[in-house]
């Protein structure tokens, strides 16, 4: 479970805080969409929950352990083993093939061979079978994003964070991505928290959190 207590975030040279004393609990296996207008602070909240950003005030607690008490190395371990990220841009490494991109987190954990079979299964699940040795440049936008999802899931993380994962895709590809999220949430029990502007995609979540001017509605 992730618990967020009284999170406030201010940026330098900005008088108004982006997030104002947010309290939130995300249960294991939850499927949560974060919605709100541009500048409402939803992406900032996602990155704070996912350890990539730090709150100005407040606490983020992972399974009763405060992130403030984590050593840097423990944070890196947490990201590597328990957290998967999907961004609006796929952020695939152009020099690596599809399967090599998927196995990047496993490379950090020194589990490449152990995870190779699962990576191939993910390739099949995300519909890229036969394209595992292609480079990202040889794939379509939708395929690239599906590849990024496979990479985020290769370590079988407990949490998957996604920041506008369908933002750059057409509705068909967007639907495919959301279906994949749902599938992993239901079948693998992955806790999924995603930011979206799309009302339909937001509605696919089991729980919808609406942010208005830095506070939960």
């Amino acid at each position: 479970m992730i618990e967020i207590k009284n999170i406030t975030k201010r940026f330098p040279n900005t008088p108004v805080p982006v997030l104002k004393g947010i309290d939130l609990k995300i249960e294991d296996g939850d499927f949560v969409s974060l919605v709100g207008k541009s500048g409402s602070g939803k992406s900032t909240l996602l990155y704070i929950i996912s350890t990539l950003d730090h709150p100005t005030e407040g606490e983020v607690i992972y399974d009763s352990q405060n992130l403030k008490d984590f050593e840097q190395e423990e944070i890196y371990q947490l990201r590597n083993h328990n957290i998967g990220f999907v961004f609006q841009f796929h952020y695939l490494l152009a020099e690596l093939t599809a399967i090599e991109n998927i196995l990047l987190p496993a490379r950090k954990a020194k589990e490449v061979e152990k995870r190779r079979g699962f990576a191939m299964e993910l390739i099949r699940i995300v519909g890229l079978e036969g394209k595992e040795h292609r480079f990202p440049g040889e794939l379509s936008g939708g395929e690239q994003q599906r590849l990024a999802i496979a990479r985020a899931l290769v370590m079988e993380p407990k949490y998957l964070f996604a920041d506008e994962p369908t933002g750059n895709l057409d509705s068909v590809n967007g639907k495919i991505i959301m279906d994949l999220f749902k599938k992993f949430n239901e079948e693998k029990g992955t806790t999924i928290i995603y930011v979206t502007h799309d009302i339909d995609f937001a509605a696919m979540a089991r729980r919808r959190i609406n942010l208005v001017d830095g506070v939960l509605e």
Partner: peptide, 16 residues
Amino acid sequence: RRDVAILRSMGFSPKD
């Protein structure tokens, strides 16, 4: 820079 961002999000450290 993008690669660095994604690598860091995967748990790669500044040393890496």
